[in-house]
Amino acid sequence: MDKVRRSLLIGGASSLVAPILPAPISPLNAAPLRYNLKAQRIAYNSYVVIGKTEDYSPDNGGDIVNVAFIDTSDGVVLIDTGSSRRYGEALKQLIYATTGKDVIRVYNTHFHPDHCLGNQLFDKKKIAALPKTISGLKASGEDFSSNLYRILGDWMRGTEVIIPEHVINYSSEKFGKHRFEMLPFKGHTDADLAILDHETGVLYAGDICFLDRAATTPHADLESWHKSLKEIKKIPHKIIFPGHGPADTTSRSIEQTDTYLTWLEKNLTKSARSGKDMLEAAKMPIPEKFQSIDVIELEIERSVAHLYPGIEEKTLPFLGQGDS
């Protein structure tokens, strides 16, 4: 995107005079915004679309998430739908161009907007999710969507929140030769669905696993997350496909997510014990082994906002209680 148009979109999102107005309509915005999605084959009949390991920006249009699709003889099974209606459109075209088939099942791995705001392009009766993913999206979907309109501007045009109608209350389902095992975890959110394709050995981990892109924690429960990572490690698989970052053949994504979250919590606890406030705590030095993880500084700052109040409550000594 050229610089002029970018500054217009940013101006629309953050200008002081009209902070709640959408991006201004200008001839420069009239050129269509296009996602350049590419399918990569990672296993038999199995394709992935790898998002940029960045934060949302008007430059990337929210193309920051991984999605995957599996070409079965019954039709295409799709895992996650991207950040916007426009992304969903590009994805649907890509799927058809690659497989020549229609989508018969969509999974939303969890309720975060980058994984399910492309739902609009698919039949909501075929979109499957865990019960708490459905309730989470019902409660927060509209807020997520308005925040993305604010950040991404015109990329979001026409995007609406579509709630999945197919509740996952079973342990597996089969399409063609592919048996998909439903693995309900939690920790990144209240309900994180991982899916194991028994035909190929690909484990679609959703955001329980990140690779070379810092893990995000807006709805995290770290204790549950560590437990989930421990369990996922025991599941036999050939490839892990994380929610963000490249496909992983060495289980490095489990290891990295686990050590990063452990390090983060340890440092925040140390900061709280030494009396630092949130702004000071966000300035922690990043060890060598995490230097190559994308957007780590940004995610640390965000994680401090998510996790620090809770950690402080555990570390500050109780002194007494007022009375009425």
Partner: peptide
Amino acid sequence: RLAEIRGRIWRTPGQKSAK
């Protein structure tokens, strides 16, 4: 749990103000 109070003071040698 209303009005539960938590807190702590840190003192550093050589600094006149505590935290």
